[in-house]
Every structure is written in C-alpha cells, then in structure tokens.
Design a protein around this nucleic acid. Structure first.
Lengths: 223, 223
DNA sequence: GCGCGGATGACAGCTTGATGACAGCTTTGC
DNA sequence: GCAAAGCTGTCATCAAGCTGTCATCCGCGC
C-alpha cells in the first residue's frame, strides 16, 4: 500500500512516514501542492494524507481538482481548525476523513487502515461468455455489446442455464427453477416457449441453447 | 439510503433519526444489541451508526460479529471516550469511522454521506450526468442548468437510482432504501408514484428512468 | 412414412405499471 | 399558536405488455 503525504512541516511528515512505514505502508512526501500534483500524476496511491495549509495554496483546491477529474483515491485531511463547518465542508468536498492537529500517530495509522481496507474484493455476479454478458445482480443482458431487454422469466431461465452451463438440464428441472408451487399447473410446453424466445435474443452471441431430445437443454459456446 | 441507528438513549436516537431523515436517509432505531441484530438480519443497510454502550452488551461485540460474518456495511461508532486506544481499537476492529459524544448532527450527516458515497463508488457528493446535476449534500438538483425543486423523497429516490445507475433496481430494494420499518405498511404503489413524479422533473435532462416490467427500474442516459 | 418430441406464431387474459385526484399530515411563516 | 402551503401516500381507473394456451408445423429417429 502506497501513501502520499502532502505536508510542508518536515517534522510532522517524517514522523508520519516513519510510523506508517512501520505499519507496512510505503510513503512518499510532498511538501507543496505542485509536488503533490506531480506525484499523483505519476503513480497511483492507496490513500492520500492531505494538509490544508500549504505554502503554494490550499489543499482543498487540490482535493477538488482530483475529484473533478474523477479520481477517487481516499483522502484523509489534516486540519488545524476545529469548526464544524470546516469539517463538514471538507467531507462534502470529497474528503473521506479528517484528523485535527495535533494528532496521534497510532490514530492516523488506524484511520488509513480503515480507509484502505475496503479496496478488496467486490462480489461480481457478472458472467461473460463469448459475446454474452450477463449480470445477475443488475439483471442486465448484453449480446455482442448491445443491451438486450429480457423479461423476468427469460432472465430466470438464462440464469439457470448459465449456472449449469455445459450440463444438460431436463425440462423438469428448468420448470422447477422457473415456477413455484402456485404455478404447478402451467403446461410444460412453456419451457419450450421460453427457450425459443431466449434463443431469439441470444442470436449472434456465440452462445447457443442446444436441444437434446428426450433429455433437456444445454447452454454452451456455439459451434 | 437506509441507516440503522443502534443507540439506547431515546433522545439522541430520535434527534439523529429526524436530522438524517431530513437529509434523505431512511432510519431504523435499535435500542439494544438484540434489536440491532434482528434488524441487520432482516434487511441491508447503507450504513450503521453504533453506540458502544448498550444495555445488553458492548457494540464492539456486534461489530466484531458482523465483520467475522463477512458483512462490510460501513459502521460509524459513537463513543463517549476520548482515549486514543479506544478509537484505534474501534477502527481496527472494523469500524469505518467514529464520532465522540456529544456530536454535532450536521457532522454525523456529513460523515454518513462520506461513508455511503464511498460505498457507491463516488468520491464526491455532486454527480453530473448529461443535463442532470445532482448534489447530495446540498440536496440540490439542476436539469439543463435550471434549478429544479424536488422533495425529500424524490431526492432520496434519485440518489438511490444514481448510486445504482445502469442496474435494474427492484421495487423492493427501492422501497427498502426509501422507507424504514415504521413505514413498512406503505403501499408499494408509492414507488411508482415517486418514479412518475421524478420523471416529470427529469424531463429533458438526457437521463431517463426506464421501466422493466416485473423487474424494477433503471436510471440511465437517455436514448 | 409415421409417430413423437420439439418449435413457433398468434391471441386473450391478466398481472403490473402509470397517472390524476384527494385527504391527512407535516412543515413553514407569521 | 394558528393558518396556509406543500408534501405524502391511498385509491381508482386506465394502459401496457408479459404470460401461457392452443394450434400448427417441423424434423429427427425408427
């Protein structure tokens, strides 16, 4: 984890750097806004510690610029001011946290850990198969890059087939997956219907639903 | 955005709930650890505000349990203690932030905005999308440059849709985000109502709320 | 060729969503 | 405190389009 410390008071910056270094962070120090910009442009950081009082301007401008540019690196602001307005202002301008000087180094360390912690693993429900791009959580379907709309039943069927890709699914099992008890009297023909409708929408995706007579259906790569 | 407030002092909890409600958050209050667990098991929250001193135990246990269980919901800890050890301890146990009592309600609000914003992958409160310009902290909305007034619920809905832009949000999820438990008996038709009202206000913004029958709604660029 | 399982187009019913009007309640301004 | 304004949510009505049935056609395997 690499951290950028934007702070012009050498003592503070070096103390922080040493302390964070011991905690496993690699730190770069930037004593001016210009240095900070140069560093941030060259490499990415897991987080930025930003003093607001700098010799060549206010850290707020730096923060605002980065956010406007779409940069989401977590920023922890250091401030000498106590007023609630200032704190609220900093947070609303895009800071993720702040610390009032003088601060305890252990606390800086803990806060940076909290900020950088949530970088890791987001559960992805997305499946990409040849020209097919299906995201179960967003219920979105793309075929060859183009968004395709599908109804609830169609998506449910697709979901089932994808989850069992490469395996033959009997109509009974598909039926069980698509309909609850209250729909038990729906004709089995319905499955065939939805397979047909899905096939039409998956046209040209490189993925095909094969028919296996007397056995069921299987989704797999085309060809 | 739905928030769980775990706090046994009724005054504090209700003041926070009222203040956050005005800011567009839907709040549930849990006065005990048992209540908190029950709530958290039943529904998901955008963030949890957690007092450490509770009648049936320490909030730390609750926090630790949730993290062990793999839950990453942002947690903001309320504490009466000043010691650095306590603060560091809370952060390292998985809290994302803390506030020392007594705290300013505006600050709680700003910190929760920062926490939920980060979760939604945003670095600042302001979002500009085509002709739509929305600022969550100022609760202000502009369409094609012109200021548009919108009510709290409308803004809350918009905020939710923007945070999940591009994905289909089921009415249930939108409902959970807009209403807490005390409003559980509100008809689901209400969502449709607010979608209609929002659509009217977003007219000509280049952003549209698409209906996906049986699935939910999705906010995306028009076209 | 025949039989059976599967494919598919059309359609009617019905669930789901849209929307205008209204009553209750909250907030705001005085 | 009071009154007015505005926000909220319910209801009823209307529109849309998803669903599943039916009938018919296709094609594989025997």
């Amino acid at each position: 984890m690499r951290i950028l410390i934007v702070e012009d008071t050498t003592d503070v910056a070096e103390a922080a750097s040493a302390s964070l270094g011991r905690a496993g962070f690699a730190c770069d120090i930037a004593p001016t806004l210009a240095d900070a910009r140069a560093c941030a442009d060259v490499t990415g950081y897991a987080a930025i510690v930003l003093d607001l009082n700098l010799p060549d301007g206010s850290g707020r401008d730096f923060l605002r610029d980065r956010r406007r540019a779409g940069d989401r690196t977590p920023v922890l602001v250091l401030t000498a001011q106590f007023s609630v307005e200032d704190r609220v202002g900093a947070l609303d301008e895009g800071a993720d946290d702040y610390l009032v000087k003088p601060f305890d180094l252990r606390e800086l360390e803990a806060r940076l850990r909290a900020l950088t912690r949530r970088e890791a693993g987001r559960a992805e429900n997305r499946v990409v198969l040849a020209g097919l791009d299906f995201d179960a959580s967003a219920q979105s379907l793309r075929v060859g890059g183009a968004a395709v709309t599908a109804t609830r039943r169609e998506l449910a069927l697709l979901n089932l087939l994808i989850a069992n890709r490469g395996r033959i699914m009997s109509k009974d099992r598909l039926f069980d997956g698509l309909f609850g008890f209250e729909n038990a009297d729906v004709g089995t023909n319905t499955i065939e219907l939805y397979v047909a409708r899905l096939r039409k929408k998956l046209m040209g995706s490189g993925v095909a639903i094969e028919t296996h007579r007397g056995l069921g259906y299987r989704l797999d790569l085309d060809g």
